[in-house]
C-alpha cells in the first residue's frame, strides 16, 4: 500500500478560499472521520443496503462541499452496490473511499 503514501497529499475543498463556506467546510471535515468509520463498520457487517445509502450521502456531500475526488469515489461505490457488482471490487472501492476521506483537509 505504499502507492497511497505517494498519493497521500491532503485534499482541499474547491471552495477553500470562499469565506461563505469556511465554517461549513471545517465542520464537515471535522465530522468526516466518523463517517469514514461508519463506512468501514457497515462493510465489515456486509450491511450493503445501509452502505449504499451512506455512499449516496457521501457522494452528495463531498461533491457539494467541493471535495470532488471523494465524491467521485463515493459515486463509484454507490454504482457498484446498485448494480450488485463483484464483492471484491466493492471491497476495493470501500478501501479507496476511506483512504480518500482520511486525506480530506480543511
Amino acid at each position: 500500500m505504499s502507492k497511497q503514501n505517494v498519493n497521500g497529499e491532503p485534499i482541499h475543498s474547491l471552495f477553500a478560499d470562499d469565506p461563505e463556506m469556511h465554517e461549513l467546510i471545517s465542520y464537515f471535515v471535522q465530522e468526516l472521520p466518523d463517517r469514514a468509520r461508519t463506512v468501514a463498520e457497515l462493510w465489515r457487517e456486509r450491511n450493503l443496503e445501509d452502505l449504499q445509502r451512506m455512499a449516496h450521502q457521501l457522494k452528495g456531500a463531498c461533491g457539494g462541499y467541493g471535495f470532488t475526488p471523494v465524491g467521485v469515489a463515493a459515486e463509484r461505490l454507490e454504482d457498484s452496490l446498485k448494480s450488485e457488482a463483484d464483492i471484491d471490487a466493492i471491497g476495493e472501492q470501500v478501501t479507496q473511499l476511506i483512504d480518500l476521506c482520511r486525506r480530506v483537509a480543511a
Binding site: E20, L24, Y27, Q57, A61, G64, Y65
Partner: peptide, 15 residues
C-alpha cells in the same frame, strides 16, 4: 432532502 449536509450547504448558499 435526506442529507443534512445539503441542508447546511443550501442554508449557507441561499443566505
Amino acid at each position: 432532502d435526506d442529507a443534512i449536509d445539503i441542508h447546511r450547504l443550501l442554508e449557507t448558499r441561499l443566505r
